[in-house]
Design a protein around this nucleic acid. Sequence first.
DNA 1: GTATCCCAGATCGTATACGGTATGTGATGC
DNA 2: GCATCACATACCGTATACGATCTGGGATAC
Lengths: 228, 228
Amino acid sequence: MIRIDERISKSELTYDWIRERIIGREFNPGYRLVLGAIAKELGISVVPVREAVRRLEAEGLVEFERNVGARVAMVNSVEYIDTMQTLGVLEGAATALALPQMSQEDIDRAQSINDSMRAMLESFDPVVFTSLNEKFHRALFHRCPNPHIAELADRGWNRMAGLRSSTFSFVPERAPRSVQEHDEILRLIREHAEPMEIEMAVRQHKWRTVEAYREQGHHAVPSPATAR
Amino acid sequence: MIRIDERISKSELTYDWIRERIIGREFNPGYRLVLGAIAKELGISVVPVREAVRRLEAEGLVEFERNVGARVAMVNSVEYIDTMQTLGVLEGAATALALPQMSQEDIDRAQSINDSMRAMLESFDPVVFTSLNEKFHRALFHRCPNPHIAELADRGWNRMAGLRSSTFSFVPERAPRSVQEHDEILRLIREHAEPMEIEMAVRQHKWRTVEAYREQGHHAVPSPATAR
DNA sequence: GTATCCCAGATCGTATACGGTATGTGATGC
DNA sequence: GCATCACATACCGTATACGATCTGGGATAC
């Protein structure tokens, strides 16, 4: 019997509720998440709200200070760069591991997403473009047989979404190049290139975006690549 | 003035308390963590205990089932293999990124740890050996300038500790080879080999351990063994 | 006018309480 | 003797309550 019930706990509902609002930019970075206020808004008590917030904290979407409260994680260039760098490593590995499980349809789907991206290079909308970009990459690694890596990559993307509504608002000039690199990755996959080569293509693709962002100089902060 | 206070929340204390016991094998995999019982043991209420348990769940040390409760994550071969594989990726990358920050003392310290490991190959104690092994690897990547990767690698090691008190209890025959590979990694670092080469050496080192474990066939047991 | 102190409001951290769900056990019917 | 059902128990999920801590602003001293 299918449980129509399938009831989900209030803390989980709250978790989704807050998270949606962070990802959807309704709650901007720095927005203060007051437990009592959210509880009243949702018509529940503060306990499940608290639990939801702590979970979001564990995933890096929210910052918490003892006896002060929670706020949506701040836009911070260093964080952004670190997250992108980490995601490059994870997603590269996840994609390489997913290769044996990848079907022709998976590849076709990714290709069609990338075609959509190319099509919109003319009338460029950074937010939509960024969202398609995420879809493209998820399509490539979602078959990853190692659930740990897949989940970490997933969290990485969520965190990114929280930190920046749109990567390509900051480095629009990278968009054409990015589409090109996507094609290149798909080509490597189709031609059954060495998994390591594909992994590095994916990683470098992300790292080049970081480079572009860094050179753009949106941040006064020096790169971690300091001299010994 | 330094706050002698520096009071830490009860939920945090509880988190540490439980975690110590899991890592220290006082709570074995499958051990049931009853909120009320722990609360009474520590003389506090269940609320902070609950929070601590959820945090441990987020890190994978504990499994939680709605309306049933929490138990220490089960020894599960698949989980173990996945975790090791992920850790190989993360630690390889973290080590490579740490290279520019690495001092001569760091390298010497790692070398001396490995020497201790070699020394104990004769009278082999898997638990101590595994612990030294962890120290060795942490010594190599702890300078990693990207805190995200470092933290993920850190969590990976903790998770491993929870899943297996000692890797080398299961594949003792790999110990000598492992020491050798450590030397090789140190050699590459000293000779300023390509970061990528070092990253792959670290990754492959871990993956070979997984291979050894897998071939050993210990994992005939899917082991949650509840099968009501 | 500036710095310090103190108080009030806001918000968190934790305790206690209670209803809901799952699990095991003994009674009942066959 | 076996399967089924009902009930008791254990434990979780959430609500409510209250003391603790932080923050900001106004009063006071100089």
